[in-house]
Design a protein around this nucleic acid. Sequence first.
RNA 1: GGGUCAGUAGCUCAGAUGGUUAGAGCGCGUGCCUUAUAAGCACGAGGUGGGAGGUUCAAUUCCUCCCUGACCCA
Length: 1048
Amino acid sequence: MYESLPDKVNLPELEKEVLEFWKRDNTFVKSIESKNPEKYYTFYEGPPTANGMPGIHHVISRTVKDIICRYKTMRGYMVERVAGWDTHGLPVEVEVEKTLGIHSKKEIIEFGPEKFNKACKESIFKYLNEWEVLTERMGYWIDLDNAYITFKNEYIESVWWALKQFFDSGVMYKGFKIQPFCPVCESPLSSHEVALGYKEVKDPSIYIKFAITHPEFKGVDFLVWTTTPWTLLSNVALAVNPESLYTLIELENGNKFILAKDRLIVIKENYNIIKEFYGKELEKISYEPLFKFLKSEKRSHFVTTGNFVTMEDGTGIVHIAPAYGEDDYNIGLEYDLPILMAVGKDGNVIQEVTDYAGMNFKTADPLIIDNLKQRGRLYKKETYEHQYPFCWRHKTPLIYYATDSWFIKTTEYKDKMIKLNKEINWNPPDIGEGRFGNWLEENKDWALSRNRFWGTPLPIWYYVNENGEEIYEIIGSIEELKQRAINFEEVYPDNKVDLHKPYIDDVKIRSKDGKYIMTRTPEVIDCWFDSGSMPFAQFHYPFENKEKFEKHYPADFIAEGLDQTRGWFYSLHAIGTFLFNKPAYKNLIVNGLILDKERKKMSKSLGNVVNPLEILEEYGADLLRWYLVYSSPVWKSKPFNEEDLIDIRNKLFDTVINTFKFFVIYSNLTGFDYRKETILDPQKRKPIDKWLLSRINSVKKEYLESLDLYDITKASRILFDFTIDELSNWYVRRNRKRFRNPEDETDKLSCYQTLYEVLIELMMMLAPIMPFLPEIIYSKLTKKNSSIHLEEFTPVDESIIDEKVEEEMRLAQLVVYIVRAIRVKNNLKVRQPLKQILIPVLNKKDKETLLKVKDIILEEVNIKELNIIEGNSDIITKKAKPVFKVIGPKYGKQVKEVQKIINDLNTDEVYKIETEGKIEKGGITITNEDVEIITENIEGWIVEREQNLTVAVDTRLTQELIEEGIAREFINRIQNYRKTNDFNVNEKINIYTKTTEDIKKAILNHIEKIKNEVYCENIVFTENIDTDYYETDINGKQCTFKVEKLES
RNA sequence: GGGUCAGUAGCUCAGAUGGUUAGAGCGCGUGCCUUAUAAGCACGAGGUGGGAGGUUCAAUUCCUCCCUGACCCA
């Protein structure tokens, strides 16, 4: 006996049983340990931060990861999977700031960095439990117990080792660069952080008059445009585009301006153009400074030239404040301009700028504008809407600020990164070539340091030499630190080492030459360097596990969301390329964002966030996983829609379950047990069974190919279509009677063994994508207590794939399809048997093919005979259709003429082509390869054509056919009655009926058949049915019956 | 402003190395089939393949420009 599934299957409940089984059975560990360690497949887990709740977008990337890892496991690979946690960085600090009610760096220092970092460490795993629950519940197999954690000393030590490699090769430097800077964090933000915070804002847009001091332009002003009035306090120069035309104009009120010719539209008054010149002619012309709070020795306040000046907006003259803009800074270097900093790192105006001292730069804006207005320096003021970066956590506007930080000179090995990127198999490919490739092309040095607290400390110490220069040295391991430090024991008594701030800041080391005591530089590093170091840092390489690391580098596979392109994908690549001269990963899948049903971004403020655990509880992990990869290619952004989940459950899941139940019901009914019978050679099975075996192998072939190419969506769609269309709606439906009542023992083995084997194969293919349900079905089918996830795919059996058989079945399905269309159009129900189908064929081969599937066709459409007309017949009209692929290249421009000739060929002419291979017409020779011959019509028949197949049906009814139709109708009524009244399949009945004479006659003529079909002992015709009767009509005639259950 | 991708039925998506009737599912209307199936099948309505040019005998497919959207970058 096979054990079935409950009538109403509760998927989430079933999954919980499976989770229990996996736990008891230790299946995940077995799935790794049972494999040959020499045949391994390496996967890297990108570490999430567990200080926030996991969301649905985490479920999709984890689904993708799990599918590939389970698949590779079932392909026989050892796939070790270790979880990881990203624990450092600003995201953690910001969460802690929120809980502590802290709003600035100053307050952190007041609070105490030691306490602050302790709070960070405690907050990291705030939602660890939720993460672990989700991970387990969704069936994501990963080793959580041995997860790598980026704040551990061992991990930091490996990162230090890496940093030292960079430092020693001279690609790490301290530089002064303009970086987006958050005044609240008091730290530069990395580019990906900035990207999180662009917002549309309205800023003041002012046109300022700069008075020219050059004698030639006395009384003339440069008209300059800016949206950041506060930077005017630090203005040291103006810039024009050297190649553009500029004009000197005079307004009616006598004001004289210089501005770009292409930007004259900003002048609304009437004006006269006095003079034109190129930008380069303006170079070095000096002007009166607007503000004089800050002074410098260096020469300043003159016109510079740069190609970055565009004619898109403003006046074509740009004001330059080298401290607050990248172009500004670069032009400052070029012209040796002073750097005036009127606004400090806290975003407030410095004391020297007395008028605005202590004000936030945004607060100062309107006052500065006012001041300019009063002094007559303001030409006009407008508002300007544009995208401006905000701190993604503090929601405060960023400033571009010249800061010193440590950089890795990634630009130095950019070409290598580009070259190695070409070895990576990106899915989808265009992200690798396009988005990521472009990013690499435009590579900028990696701003590595952060002026923060909770992170991997930059292991650099410095001293100031006699010349006042800072000299840096780097430490690459704890051991090295111990040896170089002069107070290690003091800072870390009893060898209790914590490499974090503030402890590490206390460690002093002696310089290499022994002459100086060195102090640590205060910065920590970008946490992306942490996660990008995971390939080696997770193993504490090179201090331990050297071989293990080498074996597992690079990864065969990683998968994360699209947002990681510039994040983890980049940091892995940048670090891996430099340290190991190899890409860090060979294959990757990028998944898209998950949007809500309306295609809006999910966000807390919109309240449209989907809680993955709720979905898992309601629908189950299998269904959610399937939906996420099936509904659209994983790299597309996906609108999440619960209705689609339900649809997939009704279709795929119910079909899988019911196909399995079907097998169980009839196996138990007929006493079939796969293990007890000798296996029938597939070649000896019935044609339709051979067809199914051929199909499952073809499907398997496509499935393996798709997954080997990392196309999960395609693989899932192949399985979906096969299960529903071919397995369930064709094979099982067509063979129901056989399963219930096999012809003989061979027939029984043939169908049962086939269905069993196909179910097993199907479950195995489903298992990586939906790991739960196939586990249950597999165990019930095999009666083994061993997981399906420990099984391995056997190679595709090419000998079982029979293209011809599959083709025959396709033809049969096509004929059935056409006949159904004919029936519907002529209002002939399928229950009404018809006399014959007529199909004209063009050759013997087609005839033979059709004859093979004749029985299937006839049974499916309820028609008595299938007749085939071969060759020519006077009732058939033939036509020829041009084959454009052939005649196109052959005739070129003449193609339309030839098309017309071919279309006009009559039946006789077509016949001539068929028999003689060609015909001359209109001076052109048409050969049989130029045309496709079709039969267009059969005179006197009802004809439908599809894909060049013409089918005719004889729709005339005889008395005999009508009676058979009536018998079928009668059977249908009884069966419906049985079904609606929940009669068991095996319950026998008696039928009492009252009806018209002709229906009675029809029933009597088919009485044995009826009795057999509806499981009936006796049919009694009577005039007296008074109770419990049921009234219906058959072909418009009244029929009353009563069904009586027999005691068995 | 720059880059990448996408735009095919009301919605979600296929497909075609350029070949003359562009498909499926969901939804809608109609009919049919069925004691494994909350399914299935057929018919119908619904498409100027985002727009405009170009190349070609032939463009939804290739090229150019533009529009819209998403993401990334500034």
